[in-house]
């Protein structure tokens, strides 16, 4: 079972709550996905429409809320959002994202590391969203991140795992769980991440914008399970050419 910061999760699929057509669809899709942790964002209330509380449909006993710092452009903004999120009473969990470039929404490694260092000291359980940079993953781990969340491809692009080579290195090196986040556009992408040995995946857009979000949520759940099973079973590894002894590697010198 997956354990992050001492908490265990039966499902290795984490859901997002953005971009759904309605809170009803969101709830049904998340229920179908079997996920136990969902990301949520923090925003000012719309004073013209104060009743619009879409999160009220989600049972917070069933779903662990993972507040994100989306919209933060630097460490200071992210830290402010983090503290606000904690005041919500939802605990210390935090998906840290710092995205200064509004076009690509790619995470800023320098500010993310800085914010992680500070937030960990303040007692947050920090899960940083990061580019698939192995050294950054290790630096974040050293700074006390509870997991690392490398991106498969830029957020919302549904391109799948364009960073496979890097993510593989991260998975091999990290001591903390690796959650592949962003860019997973199809159940096959999620399965691929799990087969590679990722500890979990986070999927939002691909579920929210699908023709039938409830059905695709179920498909993602099955793909994640299949991928994990495959990983644990041990895939037949890719074979490399291990040519037999050539004259060059003769061992005649041995006594």
């Amino acid at each position: 079972m997956l354990t992050i910061a001492g908490r265990t999760f039966r499902s290795r699929l984490f859901g997002g709550t953005g971009k759904f057509s309605s809170s009803r669809v969101m709830k049904e899709a998340l229920d179908a996905s079997g996920c136990e942790m969902v990301t949520v964002a923090l925003r000012r209330i719309d004073l013209d429409n104060p009743e619009d509380d879409i999160m009220s449909v989600l049972d917070r006993k069933k779903y662990l809320f993972l507040p994100n710092t989306s919209g933060a452009r630097d460490a200071d903004e992210a830290i402010r959002l983090a503290r606000l999120a904690r005041a919500s009473g939802g605990g210390d969990w935090l998906k840290l994202e710092v995205t200064p470039d509004p076009r690509t929404l790619l995470p800023d490694p320098v500010e993310t590391l800085k914010a992680t260092e500070i937030l960990v000291k303040e007692g947050f359980i920090v899960l940083p969203y990061m580019n698939a940079d192995p050294i950054l993953a290790l630096r974040l781990q050293d700074a006390g991140a509870a997991a690392v969340m490398p991106l498969g491809s830029p957020i919302g692009t549904n391109q799948g795992i364009m960073t496979a080579f890097q993510i593989e290195i991260i998975i091999n090196q990290a001591r903390v769980p690796v959650v592949v986040d962003a860019g997973l556009g199809a159940p096959s992408h999620a399965a691929q991440a799990m087969e590679m040995g990722a500890d979990a995946v986070l999927v939002n857009t691909a579920i929210a914008v699908a023709g039938d979000p409830v059905r695709i949520a179920r498909a993602f759940a099955m793909a994640v399970e299949a991928g994990r099973d495959a990983f644990e079973a041990g895939l037949g590894e890719k074979r490399v050419d291990a040519s037999a002894s050539s004259p060059e590697t003769g061992l005649d010198f041995l006594r």
Binding site: A242, S243, A244, S245, S246, E248, T249, G250, L251
Partner: peptide
């Protein structure tokens, strides 16, 4: 398989 080990190691 020592020669094969040697080849792969090399």
């Amino acid at each position: 398989f020592l020669p094969q080990l040697a080849a792969r190691s090399a």
